[in-house]
């Protein structure tokens, strides 16, 4: 029997499959289709201090082997997430969940993280310093090592749960940001967020997205994400969660070989609502095919 379990920052996952933030709602949207407790866990929709409508529509555009989104962190704000969404989440998911947090200032991140840190079901905080679709926050923290370190240090000072920092690929050297987060006390890193991208409508001669630009995700970004996971895993000593275009159990194994302790699945959920479940179900077969008995044995194995 294949052993699919992994340990992420001190918490055991029955398998390394994590549904990525922004593609899985608060879980209950998918719980009508299958028992979502088969997942390792999931990262719920990015939460900010105040409610956010997000960007104007169109927010979504097709891309070769992927999509662009410029949703802009639509969410009801941390208070409503705690009072309205988490009770519904708890009714259908019984494992520790990952709370994804975004903000526009260090104070924002500190406030939202300290609120979610008190929620018993929250296992990890995932600090999104990499959203490309908001102005005056988000990614600006994730593109400068000093700013990234400062926000991580401030959040660590007010939280008790493992802090996983979600990194942007829109930088020259992702390892510099990764090292700054590790030094500031991050317990883990997740990467990559979406790649800044755009499409233009030939009829209107204007960008397809109302926001102009958006973030590219899906199979198109998988090799880029894999390369960055490889680089970061080599540079740091804390666990790395790999994401970016993962859509099969084979992709997941590649990510783990590159150094990921666990793997998030994002865009695939949007075209196939059963994507995460199917990867979980398929994992033992693919492990057997490649002679893997214990999945944690292969973490970083490609580094030799």
């Amino acid at each position: 029997m294949a052993d699919t379990s992994v340990e992420l920052c001190g918490i055991r996952l029955t398998n390394p499959v994590i549904a990525a933030s922004g593609t899985f709602g608060y879980g209950y949207e998918f719980a009508g289709l299958y028992d979502i407790n088969c997942l390792g866990t999931f990262s719920f929709k990015g939460t900010t201090h105040k409610p956010r409508f997000g960007n104007p529509t169109p927010r979504i555009a097709e891309a070769p082997a992927g999509l662009l989104n410029a949703v802009g962190l639509q969410n009801p704000g941390v208070e409503a997430v705690i009072s309205q969404e988490l009770p519904k989440l708890k009714a259908c998911f019984h494992k520790p969940v990952m709370a994804n947090v975004s903000g526009f200032s260090v104070e924002d991140y500190v406030y939202t993280c300290s609120m979610l840190d008190q929620e018993p079901q929250v296992g990890w905080l995932e600090l999104n310093i990499s959203c490309p679709n908001v102005h005056g926050g988000g990614m600006s923290f994730g593109t400068d090592p000093a700013a990234a370190g400062a926000v991580v240090r401030a959040v660590k000072a007010v939280t008790t749960k493992p802090l996983i920092v979600k990194l942007t690929p829109n930088v020259t050297d992702i390892t510099a940001i990764a090292l700054a987060c590790e030094e500031a006390g991050a317990d883990g890193l997740s990467l990559i967020n979406t790649l800044l991208a755009m499409r233009i409508d030939l009829d209107t001669r204007r960008p397809v997205l109302a926001n102009g630009t958006g973030g590219l995700s899906g199979p198109a970004v998988f090799p880029v994400a894999l390369r960055m996971v490889w680089q970061v895993a080599r540079a740091v000593h804390i666990p790395v969660v790999g994401l970016g275009g993962v859509s099969s159990a084979e992709d997941l194994l590649e990510m783990m070989l590159a150094g990921a302790t666990a793997v998030e699945v994002g865009a695939a959920n949007l075209v196939d609502p059963y994507a995460c479940r199917d990867i979980v179900l398929d994992l033992p077969r693919v492990m057997e095919k490649y002679g893997i008995e214990k999945i944690s044995d292969i973490i970083g194995a490609a580094h030799g």
Binding site: G22, T23, F24, G25, E29, F30, K45, F53, G54, T57, P58, R59, I60, L67, N69, V71, Q74, P76, N269, L270, V271, P273
Partner: peptide, 22 residues
């Protein structure tokens, strides 16, 4: 009518503002 991402409520791609909120 809306340009949708997933079609089942996961991606927040097709939000409109209503009297009751987004």
């Amino acid at each position: 009518e809306a340009r949708m991402g997933c079609g089942f409520g996961a991606c927040m791609g097709c939000t409109v503002q209503t009297a009751a909120g987004p």
